[in-house]
């Protein structure tokens, strides 16, 4: 009898725990969307300026059917991915090289110091003149943010590797040319992953900015063009799809982190 009651209680406890988990994870967006919906429907806010979430969802569905929204999303995704890859990989390689080799660092650091703080979008006219009004310059623009972020992150990470790790490896007979893969790379991976997350946001920002300015396709174009013709629900639809794209990338990075640096994950828990 007592045991059965205990069993009930622990089952209840488990149920409560999962409800609590769900509320903690998704509670705040649900409440926000709920308030927004109520406010828009009851004219607390101007539904023409900020259409209700259900209305936005309906608009998205409509645009998928009639306005090639999926194609625009695809184009934005492609630009973002190419920009991200074109920026991240050279950024990481150059950053690691600068971190590992002092002469390289001394020679290139002034250039980084001059170029990094420039508001990137201000470079766009120059890039357009140098490279041309084409997709290549779009992707270069998108790549600049991740490039510098990864360069600086990778360089700092290499320079901050605990010297004791290299001492251990050398003492146990790891050859100098193998130190890089045995010690440096695993030691900097967590920092690179964090830099990757920052780069992700910058690349998305760059993509939308470029599409605002020159493109006739993509989510940025939809957002800006719809705003110019005062079709705010379409503009909002573009924004929401863009946000979903960003969230998907973020989750992907989180998943990659679990695979690549399992020791970090276990430390967080």
């Amino acid at each position: 009898m007592a045991g059965a009651r205990n069993g009930d209680r622990s089952r209840n406890g488990a149920m409560w725990a999962s409800i609590k988990w769900f509320l903690m994870r998704f509670g705040s967006p649900i409440v926000l969307f709920g308030l927004w919906e109520v406010a828009a429907r009851n004219n607390f806010i101007d539904a023409r300026v900020l259409p209700a979430p259900t209305k936005v969802a309906a608009t998205i569905w409509d645009m998928i059917k009639n306005d090639d929204l999926l194609r625009h999303t695809g184009i934005t995704t492609l630009r973002f991915l190419v920009g991200m890859i074109v920026g991240t990989i050279p950024g990481v390689l150059l950053g690691l090289t600068m971190g590992l080799f002092r002469p390289v660092r001394i020679i290139l650091n002034p250039l980084v110091a001059i170029l990094y703080p420039i508001p990137r979008i201000a470079l766009f006219p120059l890039v357009l003149i140098l490279v041309g009004l084409n997709e290549t310059s779009n992707m270069l623009m998108i790549a600049i943010g991740p490039f510098f972020t990864m360069l600086i992150t990778a360089m700092a990470a290499v320079m901050n590797v605990e010297p004791i790790y290299r001492d251990v490896a050398r003492n146990f007979g790891v050859k100098p040319r193998h130190l890089y893969f045995t010690v440096t790379l695993p030691a900097v991976l967590p920092s690179l992953m964090a830099g990757g997350l920052v780069s992700l946001g910058l690349a998305l920002l760059g993509t939308v900015a470029v599409e605002f300015l020159v493109s006739t396709e993509g989510l940025g174009y939809i957002i800006w063009n719809s705003w110019q013709v005062l079709s705010l629900s379409r503009s909002m639809a573009g924004l929401v799809v863009g946000a979903l794209l960003g969230a998907a990338c973020y989750l992907l990075m989180d998943w990659l982190e679990r695979w690549f640096i399992p020791w970090q994950k276990s430390a967080k828990r």
Binding site: E162, I164, Y165, V168, P186, W263
Partner: peptide, 23 residues
Amino acid sequence: QSMVFQEQGVFPWLTTLDNAAFG
């Protein structure tokens, strides 16, 4: 010879087994 380092000398990215087998 092998050296026993201070506590921070254990590699955080290797499991206990791989750390012990490192040499």
